[in-house]
Design a protein around this nucleic acid. Structure first.
Length: 230
DNA sequence: GCGACAG
DNA sequence: ATCTTGTCGC
């Protein structure tokens, strides 16, 4: 079952408004909790797909058992695009639909794994941070690209990592999830430590570069978009 | 001023 | 994100 969502009343419509919202929420991020232990409880992947022609956006939330990586529950939501893509403001494009999908789940999500960044963000408040603050859930960001941050290529073995640097500050890590394959870029969202975020990411990548959570959510949101009615 | 720039 | 076939390999 796919739920339908509308853009929330008062949702930012301009870049200036969005920046102001980030400023107002940034201080609510919690960075001093370790978060759930890797391999226990639920881990939920969220992802979004777009159809600009139809002005449609579909989100999926897929809950996995963290120990077995079996799918425990799924939910999808479809709505209108709520914001244009602007680097640094991705959250405003994805969050309304993602929240609707999370709300439609029949069980607690546990740790939420986002496709994008948390702390590794120009204003230290990426999608994962924003979603965490709005929901109160522990969140991490796992991105496929390094945005604007500098890093040294990690060693070839799986598990190797190197800091993502904003100047001298470690805002995340380039983490090798498959030997000799391009790393993923992990950063903390809300209520999770960077060490735990990386441990979770490794636990979610027994076979592929990207976490099973995002892989599952990606497939599901694309299907929801295809099947969405006009 | 000119690019680069999560999805 | 999205446009997109076949193909090489386990």
């Amino acid at each position: 079952m796919t739920t339908t969502v509308r853009v929330p009343a008062g949702w930012p419509a301009t870049e200036a408004e969005a920046l102001a919202v980030q400023d107002g929420l940034r201080g609510r991020v919690v960075l001093d909790e370790p978060g759930p232990a890797p391999g226990t409880g639920h881990v939920t992947g969220v992802d979004v797909a777009y159809d600009d022609e139809r002005d449609l956006v579909a989100a999926a939330a897929v809950v996995l058992d963290a120990a077995t990586l079996d799918v425990v529950a799924e939910a999808t939501a479809v709505g209108r695009v709520s914001f244009p893509y602007v680097p640094g403001l991705l959250a405003f494009r994805e969050i309304p639909t993602v929240r609707a999908a999370l709300d439609a789940l029949p069980c607690p999500p546990g740790l939420v794994v986002c496709d994008g960044y948390g702390l590794a963000h120009p204003r230290r408040f990426g999608l994962a941070s924003h979603l965490g603050v709005l929901t109160g859930l522990p969140t991490v960001g796992v991105a496929k690209n390094p945005f604007t941050f500098a890093y040294d290529d990690p060693d070839a073995p799986r598990g190797s990592h190197a800091p993502l640097l904003a100047g001298a500050e470690e805002v995340g890590r380039a983490l090798r999830t498959r030997a000799a394959v391009k790393p993923v870029f992990v950063s903390v969202g809300h209520r999770v430590s960077l060490d735990n975020a990386c441990a979770h990411t490794l636990a979610l990548t027994p076979e592929y570069r990207l976490p099973e959570t995002t892989r599952r959510a990606d497939t599901l949101c694309r299907r929801a978009l295809r099947e969405a009615q006009a």
